[in-house]
Amino acid sequence: MSAVKKLTTPLTPKAVRDLRKGDAVEITGTIVTGRDALHKLWIKGWPEYPDLTLRGSVLYHCGPVVRKEKDGWSMLAAGPTTSIREEPYEASVIAHYGFAGIIGKGGMGPKTLAALKEYGAVYLHAIGGAAQVLARKIVRVQGVRHLEEIGVPEAMWILEVKDFPCLVTMDSHGESLHEEVKKSSRAIFDELIGKKKAGAA
């Protein structure tokens, strides 16, 4: 792996365009979580968050385990959730709120890949199931939105992170590691099962 690139939110358009598939990055600054219920809520009415800077910020597909403390919240576990479920919505979300990065796992599809190119954003893969390693990169919970409506795992948590590690798997130039792996594994799969149709002797 090449040297780790350090990124600070909000990301500049140039910083985003400089990122390429396969780059290891570490993010510092404010990010927000959002997953299934929040995406649904967003596209239904595009709520505004005048006190947050979402443009250039990073959206994290994550449903954390949190504990209420006397003076706020602590993140007990906070790894990524599977991103593909947001495929129908993410392009609109990027267009509307101007996120420059999407952190998740498993990759996303062609619609999001096109949006990354059009609006200048990247998909950042975090390691699924690494909830302890990643929770330690969250230095503070700045706040939470929509908690009553959609509950702890789905709420919009506003997090301050330091050196949060990710791998660029989809860049703003139309490249996707997920497409690449799918293609190569498809060729092997076809070979392994053979081409014979059911019913053929």
Partner: peptide
């Protein structure tokens, strides 16, 4: 880390 601190391995 999860075992050491008795915290969930994965948030899900």
């Amino acid at each position: 880390l999860a075992k050491q601190d008795s915290r969930p391995i994965c948030q899900d």
